[in-house]
Each structure stands twice: as structure tokens, then as C-alpha cells.
């Protein structure tokens, strides 16, 4: 039985040389999977491939038993995958609440309830609801970005380096929230530079090197694995 979202044998790149080589990534609901690895290992590329933002040469992407390999990114969003890009991940000229509304653009029903739920998760958002998102602090912007993605009530949430450029305190806060989101029954995939901290909250971790799966295991196992520690976690 494969997991809720399983991506197998992904091979391809941006049109030039292949970046991914038979890369596999799986995630289940109520699970956090962290993708770590050195710079240029293809972590972000793997995530973009899962989302359909690059054309793969081969590979299957199965969501809840349905093959979504040939769907456009927008269709995949509609199918239940949400994505938080690393940069430019908010509508800076829209208010916080409008950002959330845009997140729920595809939903026809009343989204006010979801907005309230998100305000419970991120109380700071409620306070700043009428402020322009671009005027918020770095950590709050990340919260807006994640909130916007959650508005589709996704089954899978993908985050590309959610803690890039934020302070350690904010980073802990963001990871706490991600755990909370997981507990709501969401499958979470994170690409992270801050490997140690991310693996601490991860159920499973993938270590990618040169577009290939090098190690795979439970988060805490990888953290304690001497070889992984030596090569990727700085001892």
C-alpha cells in the first residue's frame, strides 16, 4: 500500500541537464516529511516537480490513488496540494485578509469559517487582518504565506524553505505551527536548509544528493545516524 502522495522515479530538470535522477518521495497524512541535502541537490526541484511546475521526463505522481502526473499546477492545487514558495509567497499589496481570500479563490462555498480557523491557528493574523501583507515583519509574512496556502483546505502542504531568513525564535514558532497543521490531518512536505531543526519535527526525512535519494528514514534516526551527521549535518 503506497502512501497518500507518492512520487516515484522522478527524472528531469529545467530543460537542460537532468537535475533529478529517479527520485522518490512519499508522504502520508498526519506526517511531516523533510527533504534535506546539500546545495544544488535538487531539493527545490523535486518539490517543483511534485507540483507540476517543471516537465518531467518520467515519473509518476499519485495522489490518493489518482495519477496526477499530467495535471497543470493549478489543477493539482484544485486536487488538494498547496504550495508555499520560498520567496514572493504573499500578495504584498493586498491586506492579510485579502491574501486569505485569494488563497481560497477556487472554493465556491463560504470561506469565512476557514478564515476564522486560520485566525485561531495564527492569532497575529487576526490582529493584522486589514494591514497590507507587505508591511508585516518577516515572520508574520511567512505566517501569511502559510495561511494563504491553507485556505484551499489542502490534503498536502508543501513548503519550500519556510524558515529562510527568519530569526531562530521565529523559526521555532513556524515549526510549532507546522506540527499543529500536521495534526489537523494534513500531509506536510518541507524542503529545508536548517536540517537539524527540521528533522527534529519530521516523521520521515529524505536526504537528496545530486538528484538521487541517498538516505531515507525516520527523522530522529537520520539525526542520530553517524554517516548522515558527518556528511550533511555538520558533525
Amino acid at each position: 500500500m503506497s502512501k497518500f502522495l507518492s512520487c516515484t522515479n522522478m527524472t528531469g530538470g529545467y530543460g537542460g541537464e537532468d537535475i533529478l535522477h529517479s527520485c522518490n518521495i512519499e508522504v502520508d497524512v498526519n506526517e511531516i516529511v523533510v527533504i534535506v541535502g546539500p546545495n544544488g541537490a535538487g531539493k527545490s526541484t523535486a518539490m517543483k516537480a511534485m507540483l507540476g511546475m517543471i516537465n518531467l521526463k518520467c515519473g509518476d505522481i499519485i495522489l490518493d490513488g489518482n495519477d496526477i502526473s499530467n495535471l497543470s499546477p493549478q489543477k493539482r492545487v484544485a486536487a488538494g496540494i498547496a504550495f508555499v514558495p520560498q520567496s514572493m509567497n504573499i500578495f504584498s499589496e493586498l491586506t492579510v485578509e485579502e491574501n486569505l481570500e485569494m488563497g481560497g479563490f477556487l472554493r465556491d462555498e463560504n470561506i469565512q469559517k476557514t478564515i476564522e480557523e486560520i485566525y485561531e491557528l495564527f492569532p497575529a493574523m487576526k490582529e493584522k487582518r486589514n494591514q497590507l501583507a507587505g508591511e508585516l515583519s518577516g515572520g508574520q509574512r511567512q505566517q501569511v504565506a502559510v495561511s494563504r496556502a491553507l485556505m484551499t483546505q489542502p490534503k498536502v502542504l508543501m513548503l519550500d524553505e519556510p524558515t529562510a531568513g527568519v530569526s531562530p525564535i521565529v523559526m521555532d514558532e513556524i515549526f510549532d505551527r507546522i506540527v499543529q497543521i500536521k495534526e489537523m490531518g494534513v500531509a506536510v512536505v518541507i524542503v529545508e536548509q536548517n536540517a537539524k531543526q527540521a528533522l527534529k519535527i519530521a516523521d520521515f526525512g529524505h536526504v537528496l544528493v545530486n538528484g538521487e535519494n541517498r538516505f531515507y528514514g525516520k527523522g530522529n534516526e537520520l539525526l542520530t545516524d553517524p554517516e548522515v551527521r558527518k556528511s550533511f549535518l555538520g558533525g
Binding site: V77, I90, E93, L94, E98, E101, M102, T152
Partner: peptide, 23 residues
């Protein structure tokens, strides 16, 4: 209006608008 807001959103950040399902 939703349509108007999506226009502003598209104007502000095209890629994210696509990710939000704005046509």
C-alpha cells in the same frame, strides 16, 4: 469583489496568483 481582488492579486504577484488557482 472577488474578481477585482483577483485582478489586483494577479497584478501584484502573478506566480502566486496561478498557485492560488486564479485563471
Amino acid at each position: 469583489t472577488k474578481m477585482g481582488k483577483s485582478m489586483r492579486a494577479y497584478s501584484n504577484n502573478e506566480d502566486l496568483a496561478l498557485l492560488s488557482g486564479i485563471n
